[in-house]
Amino acid sequence: MRKIIVLLVVMAMVIPTVFAQGAAESAEKFPSKPIKLIVPWSAGGGTDAIARALAKSGEKHLGVPVVVENKPGGTGAMGLGETVKAAADGYTLAVLPVELSFLKDQGIYPFDFSNFTRIMNLNTDPSALTVKTDAPWNTLAEFVDYARANPGKIKIGHSGTGMLWHLAAATLALETNTQYTYVPFNGAADAIASVLGKNIDAVTVSGAEVSAQVRAGEMKILAVFGERRMEIFPDTPTAREQGFEVVVNTFRGLGGPAGIPEDRVAILHEGFKKMMEEPEFVKVIGNMGLGIDYRNTTDYYKLTDDTAKTLEPVLASLLEIK
């Protein structure tokens, strides 16, 4: 009995000192405990795959494990809301979706990119105007001409009103001064199925999402709304090459709550950059058909700010229609 008491006393004395040491250490060295990476979507999606593929080599490049945590709900708002509220010590990060550029204006998100410390960009994927193979148009110009002659007759499907692929279609409409009927679907896959079933005429979802159909010859891409051609479809011209200034990309970046100290951002940036260069990460992302697009902190800030700026008039044009 006495032994136990002695043991307890000793433990009571030792444990706090151990913790205190840990605390002292963490003041100098970052990172010193596992980093939580919040994915604001459910497990199994594209964002989740990117996060998990990244986190795998976290220990190797940062010295601490990176733990992926899915916080789905509210089209990303739940997970992002938790990130905003977390301590800005660099131990809580999140994969930031492109929606932060425009969903606050629509009253859906209560926050935008300015509420986050942005670290780096991980991936971008362009929107692609895709129609069924037997559709009468072969180029973007033919498509636009037809739309001009028949305003509102072409039905374009997207993955949700006010979401990026809707804005992509609206950008095309604004740029070419044409009108379309937008049909919102619950996700890109349902929209694609509806094109296959000839219920709608076109989709403006990401090129990666239609690649299976395009490769199989069921659908054809009229134009890629990216800055350059897609790696998987090197023969498909961009809208810009065809003379239309339509560039709409989705991007996923890495960030945390606003106010993470700069030196910590630099450490995280360095570590995650190396994690992105891991061959296994490159392979997994390639398999998913997603485009890796590393941009450093400054460029990432520029990307997010530019996107918000270019989408502003598009949003305004949509609100007018509403």
């Binding site: 999606g45 299976a212 392979k283």
Partner: peptide, 15 residues
């Protein structure tokens, strides 16, 4: 979710 898993494995489901 399975579809996502297939793609990670490098299999693109489709025709």
């Amino acid at each position: 979710v399975i579809l996502g898993g297939l793609m990670v494995l490098g299999l693109q489901p489709g025709p």
